[in-house]
Design a protein around this nucleic acid. Sequence first.
DNA 1: CGGTATCCACTTAGATACTG
DNA 2: CAGTATCTAAGTGGATACCG
Lengths: 142, 142
Amino acid sequence: MNETRYSQADLAKAETYKARDYPENVDPDVEKLVRDMMSGFADKWTVVILDTLWDGGTLRFSELARQVTGISQKMLTQTLKRMERDGLVVRKLYPSVPPKVEYSLSSLGLTLGAAFCNVWIWAVENHDAVAAARNSFDDRQD
Amino acid sequence: MNETRYSQADLAKAETYKARDYPENVDPDVEKLVRDMMSGFADKWTVVILDTLWDGGTLRFSELARQVTGISQKMLTQTLKRMERDGLVVRKLYPSVPPKVEYSLSSLGLTLGAAFCNVWIWAVENHDAVAAARNSFDDRQD
DNA sequence: CGGTATCCACTTAGATACTG
DNA sequence: CAGTATCTAAGTGGATACCG
């Protein structure tokens, strides 16, 4: 099935990114569910907010707005609400004047953040390789 | 900084998703670069195609179209081209009639796929918890 | 078979203004 | 402060038709 052959070095390197082995046989229905869920999480802002809360712990709305560079208030509100609905984020409202709202990762969000750690590490270690690939590709296109 | 307290059980569970420790101090410039790159990869189809090639090894265009349920030809072409440009995917053209094109993960794509394994595992293990969170959230909204 | 090109309906997200 | 509401420009992606 897998016709592509990878070097031992490549395979060994891949192993360093894996904490556990990938489950071999997954129920197709579960597979579909999971893909849908992944698609839901896999948007620009969810990943960045997850990471920001992973680093920062508990943050106020305005702190998040400052740290997540480039996000609009609308998208921040929207994404946080979806993440809260998905059980990734806990929203704590202090009914003071002016109001104060704190966001932090739930247990679910914490473990998802941990799972994303390796992707993040991969990105740190390989972003120059990606840049090189892009340059090389663009050159070939004349 | 981190005001949220997690139980030992939660923290221990998070550890099982991590292959390696997260680098503490990252150059802000690198951080920005990496976030941009993550945002680029974090779209609906890239993750699914990465996973499909991770499972399937070398696949023809039409095989990918069949296995990546719901994708249009346009999006498949587009996403594959961007992944090829990013150095994640290798495209091999057999100049026969009718033409035959095979796609597989490069070394870079293989390691990224490995990095995503834990996210995938997390999704398999927690999709019911997410569904429960959604139901509970929607109920609270009346 | 594996694309490309064009058109268009729909979604998305930024800007702006307003509120408890 | 932490949102909500509205409008709109731009982008996205599906459908369709065609090509090497």
